[in-house]
Each structure stands twice: as C-alpha cells, then as structure tokens.
C-alpha cells in the first residue's frame, strides 16, 4: 500500500495532479448548487412580497371605492 502511494518516488507529483483534478471539479460541481439556493431564495422573497402587496391593495379597495 505504501508502495502504491510512493509511486516509485513520483508520489508527490502524481497525487498533486490528481488532487487538483478532484478539487477543481468538485468546486465546479458545487458552484451551481450554491447559485441555485440563492436564486430560489430570491424568487421566494419576491413572490412573498408580491403576495403581501396584493392582499394589502385588496383590503384597501373597499375604502377607496366608497
């Protein structure tokens, strides 16, 4: 097993290369998930604000009409 990790002295180079491969692709895979959470939270907030405005204007309507 240690032989496998040593790679006949090239271990440091090989594991650095493979490490970079994994870390960068993992970051690439996670970035859109974070963006998705942010976009959905923003949309939810906007819809809630719109809903609140609608109920407000509806309750105000009878008074302004009379």
């Amino acid at each position: 097993m240690t032989d496998f990790f040593a790679m006949h002295g090239y271990g440091a180079y090989i594991w650095t290369a493979y490490g970079v491969f994994f870390v960068v692709l993992l970051a690439d895979a996670l970035a859109p998930l974070r963006q998705r959470r942010r976009t959905l939270a923003e949309l939810r907030g906007r819809l809630q604000r719109e809903a609140a405005r609608d109920t407000l204007s509806k309750s105000a309507l009878p008074r302004s009409g009379s």
């Binding site: 006949h8 090239y10 180079y13 090989i14 290369a17 493979y18 970079v20 491969f21």
Partner: peptide, 11 residues
C-alpha cells in the same frame, strides 16, 4: 517515464 506518466490520465 516510470510512474510519473500516470498524470496523463487526468491531464
């Protein structure tokens, strides 16, 4: 290149 060629698989 001995084992160092294995970098080819990610590069």
């Amino acid at each position: 290149q001995h084992d160092s060629f294995r970098i080819i698989y990610v590069h």
